[in-house]
Design a protein around this nucleic acid. Structure first.
Length: 155
DNA sequence: GCCAACGTTGGC
DNA sequence: GCCAACGTTGGC
């Protein structure tokens, strides 16, 4: 699984909490607050600097892909897990054995338009995307290279 | 705001 | 290790 090839990802964010415009303004941000082991494992074990990311807005009027970002760092411990004042504080974690890892994400561009979840669902070619699988709630997930190319073609 | 689908927790 | 209860996600 660790070839030198660029891989593709989709990362969800609620725009009220952190939107593609927020990332554009800040240029680069730690993707903190992920508290799901599968999502963590993708960041910790499989992401490489330079991997491309679809930035997805969830839990909003028109959920969908709104932009492109890039993995900017290797994985490192999510600082918010050590901060008792953070809502992401995890008393079960320690600096010696951090439970939660993250990567920094760098802004690349906004899409000209939102490619909505509804639109993605309408394409049979994308039916195998983890995003579209019933009941999937992962906030960080892989995107197959052919799906990445296909979706870019929709823009 | 509702609720289905999951993930996590904790009693046993 | 089972599983009910609970919490969260996220579309609608």
């Amino acid at each position: 699984m660790s070839s030198g090839k660029t891989r593709y990802w989709l990362m969800k964010s609620e725009p009220e909490a952190f939107s593609i415009d927020d990332l554009k303004r800040k240029r680069q941000e730690p993707w903190d607050g992920v508290r799901n082991y599968q999502a963590r494992n993708f960041m910790r074990d499989e992401m490489r600097q330079g991997d491309r990311i679809f930035f997805y807005h969830s839990n909003c009027a028109t959920p969908g892909i709104v932009g492109i970002a890039e993995v900017a760092t290797d994985a490192y411990p999510d600082p918010s897990q050590f901060d008792p004042k953070s809502k992401y504080f995890d008393p079960g974690s320690s600096r010696d054995k951090p439970r939660w890892m993250l990567v920094d994400v760098k802004f690349v561009k906004k899409l000209k338009r939102t490619i909505s979840l509804e639109e993605l669902k309408s394409h049979d070619a994308l039916a195998e995307m983890p995003l579209l699988r019933k009941g999937n709630r992962l906030s960080v997930m892989p995107v197959a290279a052919n799906a990445w190319t296909y979706i870019l073609g929709l823009e």
